[in-house]
Computed example of a mutant assay.
Amino acid sequence: MIEILIINSLLIASVVLVHYEGLYRLTRLIPKLTFLRPRARIVISVFGALTAHVIEVWMFAFAYYFMVKSGRYGTLEGNFGGSVMDASYFSFTTYTSLGFGDIVPMGDIRYLVGLEALTGLVLITWTASFIFIEMQRFWKIKS
């Protein structure tokens, strides 16, 4: 139980740090792109944030893949063939809280699945706030 708690905590902390760093770097970069129109800077903000989300989803996907492969933390059952792509599909549906339900977690891995859904919700709303603030800042400038 302690082992799964440590693994989950380290993964969540890593994902949050990746998101923080991504948004922080975008905040510093976007104002320096004065050669671009404000609309283009907003688009770069969106693509940058999406890139951070994709990296985070893949971090969870690799965690699922290795946890299932180890056989010590549970399984992903249903339409799960055990590939990295299956793990990434499951991670995308979990992170976005879409949850098709064609892959079902069993065992201790369920705790990480719940944490990913919660983390995805928080990070997606953080991104929405970030983009809203960027839009307020740059749409005041004539585009």
Rank of each mutant, 00 (worst) to 15 (best):
W58P: 01
V46I: 09
F100H: 11
E21G: 11
D86G: 07
I131Q: 05
F80P: 09
L23R: 05
R37G: 02
V104F: 02
L33Y: 03
E77K: 15
T75D: 15
L118Q: 14
F35V: 06
M67P: 03
L50F: 09
H53Y: 03
T127F: 01
L118E: 09
L33F: 01
V54S: 14
T93D: 15
R41H: 11
T51C: 13
Y24M: 13
D102E: 13
Y20L: 15
G107P: 08
N8S: 02
H19A: 15
S143Y: 03
I7H: 07
L76R: 08
T119V: 12
K69P: 04
M106W: 04
H53N: 05
I141E: 14
T127E: 12
S91L: 11
E56H: 01
S143G: 10
I55Q: 02
I42C: 08
F35D: 13
A61M: 07
M1T: 12
M106H: 04
Y111N: 13
Y89H: 06
R72I: 10
V113D: 12
M135C: 09
R137S: 12
Q136K: 09
K140I: 06
I103Q: 02
L76W: 11
T27I: 02
Y64S: 06
H19P: 02
F66T: 05
N8A: 06
H53C: 10
V57N: 00
G107S: 02
K142G: 01
S14T: 10
Q136P: 00
